[in-house]
């Protein structure tokens, strides 16, 4: 099971003013596991995710996906990298082109990678929508006609429709109400298990990270503060910063015992 899918080695991103947004980060993600990256604003967690996703070029270091160098891949290798790795973004309001129907949005990745013909794509889109719990009629709707939670379901559908090996999520539930967040997180976990996905989940919310992650990386000022299993990091943090972060979380179940019917998430 120690089959490494994503390897990040000595990755640094420096922006103009000489401050490193991400500073010499090394970590790996094993097949089938979810790595949660948690940190406050300016910790570099989203920048790191975007470098893995090939959206921001690292200043130094290498990132590999299944042994292929993400930033030096060409042609067929690059296509394979793109196909293997999909993303779910934070903002349900701006992560879809407002002028495209959900059907068009979901067909785009298939068209770009030349998968299937018109009929088989439509069939796949229908199945995927059903899997994320949306009615088939959603294909003809537009993003603004959907609620925030429905849009994040579409975002998950877009990410998994090509059966990627890896899904990277950047604060996918931060803009949602807690009740909706709970449903979307549940869906995320189910789909991840079903498809055996490897995933990286970035959030500022420690409790959400605890709920979805197998292992957790804590970042601060662009550096990796600590990394370990979720149990270990949250129950016996090694660094003072992690401790301070945990203590700062206003968690209702610190003072009051959690209700019995609450899932523990592990």
């Amino acid at each position: 099971m120690t089959d490494t899918v994503i390897q990040v080695a000595g990755v640094t991103k420096s922006f103009v003013r000489g401050v490193n947004a991400v500073d010499d980060v090394t970590l790996s993600v094993a097949r089938g596991e979810t790595l949660g990256i948690v940190g406050e604003s300016g910790s570099g967690k989203s920048t790191l995710l975007r470098m893995i996703l090939r959206l921001i070029r690292p200043s130094a270091g290498t990132i590999t996906l299944d042994g292929r160098d993400v930033w030096n891949a060409h042609d067929r290798d690059l296509k394979a990298v793109r196909r293997q790795m999909q993303a779910v973004f934070q903002d349900p309001a701006s992560s879809f082109n407002p002028r495209q129907s959900i059907g068009t949005i979901l067909a785009a990745p298939l068209e770009v990678h030349g998968i299937g013909d018109r009929a088989s794509r439509a069939k796949l889109i229908g199945e995927t929508l059903e899997r994320v719990g949306l009615p088939a009629a959603t294909v003809s709707r537009f993003p603004h006609q959907l609620s925030g939670g429905q849009r994040q379901r579409v975002a998950i559908a877009r990410a998994v429709i090509m059966r990627p090996a890896v899904v990277l999520a950047d604060e996918p539930t931060s803009a949602l109400d807690v009740s909706v967040q709970a449903q979307v997180l549940k869906l995320f976990r189910e789909i991840k298990d079903e498809l055996g996905l490897t995933s990286v989940f970035v959030s500022h919310n420690l409790a959400v990270i605890r709920e979805v992650s197998d292992r957790v990386a804590v970042m601060r000022h662009g550096r990796l503060v600590e990394i370990g299993t979720a149990e270990r990091v949250f129950n016996s943090p090694e660094s003072d910063y992690t401790r301070a972060l945990i203590d700062a979380v206003p968690d209702p179940f610190r003072r009051f015992r959690a209700p019995v019917e609450l899932e523990s998430g592990s």
Partner: peptide
């Protein structure tokens, strides 16, 4: 609402 709230202190 209580059941939906993710927590660091699961029972």
């Amino acid at each position: 609402l209580l059941a939906s709230t993710p927590t660091l202190f699961p029972r």
